[in-house]
Design a protein around this nucleic acid. Structure first.
Lengths: 166, 166
DNA sequence: GCAGGGGCGAAATATTATTGCGCATCAAGT
DNA sequence: ACTTGATGCGCAATAATATTTCGCCCCTGC
């Protein structure tokens, strides 16, 4: 793997580990069709080269008492780079904000937030987000229900793409 | 763990596995302060009871050729339950749609999408999403850059909460 | 005070991960 | 065509981990 390009086995490994990050290396090797040692070497290489950024347990937020999920659209007064990064830094410090993305268009940022209940979120909203300097507008939308939540990448699309290119 | 309530050790386990889902049970046991066998039993119980929904490798979408990330706000013509679930079903079938959440307010759904490039996304947008029956309006926002992306739950908030309650 | 459930941890065993070669393949250079 | 070097595979040995087994302790309710 001197080149940054991945072969089919590497892509299978990534797909398998995205689906089940705790699969044993023995099982993984079996699925991708090579023996355990080279399989493990590939996984290590994928980790070191940054294709795999980490492994995480997916926890049930609702069961843990985070009943509320909210998307917040944020507009800033100034979009100067200094102000943008300052706002991003704030978001990193707020535990209730799980994601922060800068967007094009009228809204500057979209935030995905969680909270134990509505009043906790309102408290965060009025006490923190809305009082942050440079924040011009915030529009929040409560998540009524989740229909799909599969972070990551569609490996089937990737494979199609590879076959067309190859 | 006859009750559905978790003790401090369970919460620590969840926090550790959320941060590093591939941690060995030995290491995990050391960190939460018990020996390996009961630690493993707890993990299994957490898995079976649904607190842990699974484990996933976090892959680098950009490195894998998914350069584009888009949030799409979707409004439907009819919000009858049948129509809502029909739309959700569509979303589950579209590989480029990674998340789909039903919202309150003017927008009915927000979708998080990925794509290899802008034209792939445009193709999906005009060829699939916009031609879907009952879809009234779609407003898309390109992600310029990500500032924070930590799916899951803020366990420090959870601990505070427990201490206040206890 | 004495069952009995629940949970812990030491020790034994079964699986896995990891390392250390030697072999095959391929591409470049002679 | 014959090296030579780089890359990657897999067998076999070893090191770590996971998992099971079992006896102990601490509660709680009689």
């Amino acid at each position: 793997m001197v080149t940054t390009r991945l072969d089919e086995i590497d892509r299978k490994i990534l797909a398998e580990l995205q689906a089940d990050g705790r699969m044993t290396n023995v099982e993984l090797a079996k699925r991708v069709g090579i023996s355990a040692p080279p399989c493990l070497r590939r996984v290590r290489t994928l980790e070191e080269s940054g294709f795999i950024r980490g492994y995480h347990a997916e926890v049930n937020a609702r069961e843990l008492g985070f009943e509320v999920q909210v998307f917040a659209s944020v507009g800033l007064e100034s979009q100067a780079e200094t102000e943008l990064t300052a706002f991003e830094e704030r978001c990193r410090e707020w535990p209730l904000v799980r994601e922060c993305h800068m967007l094009n268009g009228e809204v500057d940022f979209i935030l995905k937030c969680v909270a134990p209940d509505l009043s906790s979120f309102q408290q965060f909203l009025t006490g923190e987000l809305l009082t942050t300097p440079n924040v011009a507008s915030v529009k929040t939308s409560l998540v009524i229900r989740g229909a799909k939540d599969e972070p990551g990448v569609p490996f089937d699309v990737l494979e199609e793409r590879m076959n067309r290119t190859a």
